[in-house]
């Protein structure tokens, strides 16, 4: 398993994503100006503030050459995970439904949250149990997931809501407590909390590993 992590100017959590992905495979950085994905088997779009997020979170990164290639990779069914800013980038690039707005209190907040796994039928949650609770840190200023009611109803209907904040944990005001969603093909998943920061008991929790382990299940199923 080879996993690519695109690095944009302003990325912050790319090394953390490399380390986490390293638990299940070889991980390497991909440069934002390159279209060459170096033949990787999966992509993790990392957190941070790509291009400073000055226009709108994820907006500029969504237009970068590497994201062009990642969009093709995703359309061909390749597994893509977007974490935090990566989720914002995937939404901005049209690969995931909805948008991420400023938190309801308009502040950056870091908090260890409980996520419930709403579906295990994705490339990134197949190793989890339905309804499993994961303790994972969230840290962002623009993490309030939102979609027009028709779109929200449609993706709920199609089981595309992958993670929800557990009861009482929706600190950013996300619609319907949504913390993460997937595309119709179920190979592209994005979430605001940081599973790559939950892979080592010494730094808090290992609950995030299940996302990366799901990749291996997918690979053996092929």
């Amino acid at each position: 398993m080879r996993i690519g992590v695109p690095q944009f100017p302003g990325s912050c959590d790319e090394v953390d994503a490399l380390l986490a992905a390293g638990h299940v495979g070889d991980a390497e950085l991909l440069w934002h100006r390159d279209r060459d994905l170096k033949g990787v088997d999966a992509i993790v779009v990392p957190g941070g503030f790509s291009y400073g997020d000055y226009l709108r979170a994820g907006a500029i990164a969504g237009l970068s050459p590497v994201m062009d290639a990642i969009a093709d990779f995703a359309r061909d069914g390749g597994p893509v995970l977007g974490i935090c800013n990566g989720f914002q980038v995937l939404c901005a690039a049209g690969l995931l439904p909805g948008a991420l707005l400023q938190n309801q209190d308009r502040r950056f907040v870091l908090r260890q949250v409980e996520l419930s796994v709403e579906t295990t039928d994705t490339d990134w949650t197949s190793a989890a149990e339905p309804g499993q609770l994961l303790s994972i840190p969230a840290k962002h200023q623009s993490g309030r997931w939102w979609a027009p009611s028709e779109l929200h109803a449609e993706i709920a209907d199609q089981d595309q809501i992958v993670f929800k904040y557990a009861a009482g944990g929706n600190f950013n005001g996300s619609l319907d407590d949504v913390a993460g969603v997937c595309n119709e093909g179920r190979n592209v998943v994005g979430l605001m909390p940081h599973p790559e920061h939950a892979v080592d008991a010494l730094t808090g929790s290992t609950d995030g590993l299940v996302l990366f382990r799901s990749l291996l299940e997918g690979a053996t199923n092929v």
């Binding site: 090394v15 495979g25 950085l29 990366f212």
Partner: peptide, 22 residues
């Protein structure tokens, strides 16, 4: 910025951590 390779036999459950003081 390291490139990361999995430890031989890594189980992916965090148990591959090196032993000894950190």
């Amino acid at each position: 910025h390291p490139s990361v390779a999995p430890e031989a036999g890594a189980s992916g459950d965090g148990t591959s951590a090196a032993s000894g003081p950190i």
